[in-house]
Design a protein around this nucleic acid. Structure first.
Lengths: 120, 120
DNA sequence: CCAATACTCAAGCCGCGACTTGACAATCAC
DNA sequence: GTGATTGTCAAGTCGCGGCTTGAGTATTGG
């Protein structure tokens, strides 16, 4: 849904560059934790912590089979952010329409200049 | 554009709940700094700091006329985030297609046609 | 069994970011 | 002019978030 709590978790998760890098890799396909950790020069434990944030926000889904945890994107998580952004832009554009209407109402379209009022 | 630096600034800006609240109000229309500050129970100075972050990320544009600074949304800033999200989901969906192709390759479907031919 | 792999957990360090305070500047209203 | 409004700046506090370390637990392969 769009309750402000999940919006908060999603945007907070995406606010970190390392987590966005993880999302980018996962958007190419599922990966294990150590595969995710390999190109990042941080500890495996740090990667796990990032994954917890991503999972609690609903962006990533993980499943442990044997001793390896497989991670994959859950696009519904990202869709929370997409909807929030779309809503903001929607309101902004509607506002422009209303502004246009107001301007048309208040000021009739500019005809020949009536700046000087000569007394005939 | 989509260089990782502006993506970073935009998502970092949106990672804070107060800043998102500001963006929500501004998507209804332009407001002054003190109007923005009124419903938020933080100092005016704190609001100004949030606005600096939002402005440097390109999400908000401000202009000072007289003693009042008027703030309005600049939707191109949000579009940076929207494109990043759309790209991620695009790749994820393309991945599903390729997976389907692989499955079809490995296991010839009972249907008539094959999408890809084997290496000669 | 033994060793290596692939995590997991708890604790602690530390810098950055959100926020306040207080003093100051510029503009408006009378 | 005086005083109120509106914002700006610099400095400092403080908690949270990202990261490491180190020890521990399953799981796999030979």
């Amino acid at each position: 849904m769009l309750n402000s709590d999940s919006v908060d978790r999603v945007f907070h998760a995406l606010g970190d560059a390392t987590r966005r890098a993880i999302v980018e890799r996962l958007s190419r396909g599922a990966l294990s934790v150590s595969e995710l950790a390999r190109p990042l020069d941080i500890t495996l434990a740090a990667v796990v912590q990032h994954l917890q944030v991503l999972e609690e926000s609903g962006i990533v889904q993980t499943e442990k089979v044997g001793r390896v945890r497989s991670c994959q994107l859950q696009p519904d998580g990202l869709r929370v952010a997409e909807s929030w952004l779309a809503d903001r832009r929607g309101l902004w554009e509607r506002r422009f329409d209303r502004l246009g209407q107001l301007l048309e109402e208040a000021e009739p379209p500019p005809g020949p200049s009536r700046r000087r009022k000569d007394k005939p």
